[in-house]
Amino acid sequence: MAGLEDLYKEIILDHYRNPRNRGELETPPAVKAEGFNPLCGDEIVVFIDVDDSGTIADVAIGGQGCSISQSSASMMSAAIKGKTTDEARDLIESFKGLMSIHEKGLDGAAAEGDKPDLSMGDLSALRGVVKFPVRIKCAVLSWNTLAQALDDARTN
């Protein structure tokens, strides 16, 4: 059985206790998207301000939830700030890939094609979440909400 130390890594708890980019942005110019996890009641609000060159100039996170959903949102906000929307979409894809890795590929170095993506930075700390399948929804909530915000920003 996976131990809690695989889940509650220090960096995750740090983002939970000291969330980055917490707050709101004025809409417009920013766009706002809300995400809900109907099972546990977690709510995430993502604000992104995309400039004319397609760069995410600013990001803010609101809502409430458990340590995993909150820390994932905090790390995400730090990771996407200053990135282009295309880069942000790539990151969403990479993060979701990280979350759906089969557990047998996690323990030890045996798994091929499964090495941590260095560009993921702090986010790699969340890879332990896949050992707790119920919590994957918590970790991806903010990312799904970001995808929605990016879609909204494109149509605006």
Binding site: L4, C40, C66, S67, I68
Partner: peptide, 21 residues
């Protein structure tokens, strides 16, 4: 401690409670 995290911690000791709304 968020209820979801409480439930996760309790699960380590096979104590089963419901977390959520």
């Amino acid at each position: 401690v968020h209820p979801h995290d409480i439930s996760q911690v309790l699960d380590q000791d096979n104590v089963y409670v419901r977390a959520g709304h």
